[in-house]
Simulated scan of single mutants.
Amino acid sequence: MDHVVVRPMAVADLARAERTSSETFYVADQLSRRVSEPEPQPRDAAGAEKWIARMRYYLDVDPAGCWVAEDDGAIVGFAISQNRGRFWYLATYGVLPDRQGGGIGKRLMDAVLAYADGRQGMFSSTVHPGATRRYRLAGFTLHPQLRMVGTVDRSTLPAIGGLRDGTADDFAWMDRLDTKLRGAGHGPDHGYLLNTMRLVVAKSENRRGYVYIDDAGRAALLAAEDTETASDLLWEALASAKGETLVNCITAANHWAVDVGLAARLDIGQEGYLAVRGMADPRPYLASGQFL
């Protein structure tokens, strides 16, 4: 492993890092697949383009949090993190399956945690034993996550009022809500998310919250002042679902989302951990896997 170099990521690394990410997570999905689930599929060309575009965004906004492990010109691992004020998050992290267990992952994690510089932080974790041990030793509390999957029974959809499409004019109060729930705003991430997803907001004197809904009609990030507003926003996302849908990153503090999913006739399962350090498990809140 002495010839493996852990260094800051560069734009020229993006295509090679994407291939490493694709292989790493494809194998992980195969190993964690439940018997009732369909066979995982490799990332397609459109997915690869989205991954590269998202990593390029991280490099543009906070390049010092982006690291790769290189061995003789090949990218064998990566760890992409970001600082947002006093908050740090890990967007994605992985090491090629045949290179795991040799200390590369530890070196990458040491690099991004050093960059965090003691900030409170959060990220979504798999159940990989070596990785979760590393996270716990780094001071993170691991909150088990649930997920809801299936096709929405559209006869269960309630009539929801008081919601509208959001715009960049909403970012200021959304960041204040983020700060209340997780200690810091999403800042520039809101602009990226708005450009790639639909934003729905609830904004009145006693009712504030938002949800980003992806192009498959899935809730990608949700935050609210109270569980009633959060539930309405999640129902709006479920109403937008195209075919089978997914609601993930549900921690015990956010059991309201389980109630909504069960009411919509979705199935419940377990999926990894939400790792937090220096902060409480945010509620009512459904984290984004990439922007937390």
Score class of each variant (00 low, 15 high):
Ala253Trp: 02
Asp62Phe: 15
Ser204Asn: 10
Leu181Phe: 07
Pro158Thr: 08
Ser22Asn: 10
Val76Ser: 00
Asp169Asn: 11
Tyr135Phe: 15
Met9Val: 05
Ile104Gln: 10
Lys106Asn: 07
Gln120Asp: 11
Arg277Cys: 03
Arg16Asp: 15
Arg277Gln: 13
Val68Phe: 06
Ala45Asn: 02
Ile104Gly: 05
Trp67Arg: 08
Val201Ile: 09
Trp173Cys: 06
Ser125Asp: 06
Thr196Val: 10
Lys242Trp: 03
Pro282Glu: 13
Thr151Glu: 15
Val68Met: 07
Ile52His: 00
Asp170Asn: 08
Leu262Ala: 05
Ala253His: 11
Ala116Asn: 04
Arg99Leu: 11
Glu228Cys: 04
Glu236Val: 09
Arg133Gly: 13
Asp169Ser: 14
Ala202Glu: 12
Leu163Asp: 03
Asp232Ile: 00
Ser21Cys: 13
Ile213Gln: 03
Ala12Gly: 11
Val68Asp: 04
Asp259Lys: 15
Thr151Cys: 11
Gly183Phe: 02
Gly47Val: 07
Gly73Thr: 12
Gly121Trp: 05
Lys50Thr: 12
Asp60Trp: 01
Thr141Pro: 02
Ala253Asp: 11
Val247Phe: 03
Leu96Ser: 06
Leu96Trp: 04
Tyr57Gly: 05
Val112Met: 06
Pro144Lys: 12
Thr132Tyr: 03
Gly272Tyr: 04
Tyr285Asp: 08
Arg277Glu: 07
Ala69Leu: 09
Asp226Glu: 12
Cys249Phe: 04
Pro40Arg: 01
Arg119Pro: 02
Ser21Ile: 03
Ala239Ile: 00
Met122Thr: 00
Leu146Val: 00
Trp173Lys: 05
Gly217Ala: 05
Ala241Asn: 03
Arg84Phe: 01
Trp88Pro: 01
Arg84Trp: 02
Gly191His: 09
Leu246Ile: 10
Val4His: 00
Arg176Leu: 13
Gly77Lys: 05
Arg133Pro: 00
Ser204Glu: 15
Ser288Lys: 08
Asn83Gln: 14
Glu49Arg: 15
Ala253Gly: 15
Leu59Lys: 08
Pro188His: 02
Asp226Gln: 07
Asp2His: 09
Ile160Asp: 02
Met9Leu: 14
Ala252Thr: 07
Ile104Asn: 07
Ala184Cys: 07
Phe25Leu: 11
Ala114Arg: 14
Asp214His: 03
Gly191Pro: 02
His255Arg: 15
Gly162Ile: 09
Thr167Asn: 00
Ala275Ser: 13
Asp153Pro: 08
Asp13Asn: 02
Ser81Ala: 15
Gln100Asp: 05
Asp226Met: 04
Tyr285Asn: 08
Gly77Trp: 04
Arg34Lys: 14
Asp170Lys: 05
Ala91Ser: 15
Val200His: 04
Ile80Pro: 00
Asp175Arg: 01
Asp117Ala: 15
Ala74Lys: 14
Met279Cys: 09
Ser81Ile: 06
Met174Arg: 13
Gly130Thr: 11
Tyr285His: 14
Gln120Val: 11
Ala111Gln: 11
Gly65Gln: 06
Glu49Met: 11
Arg207His: 12
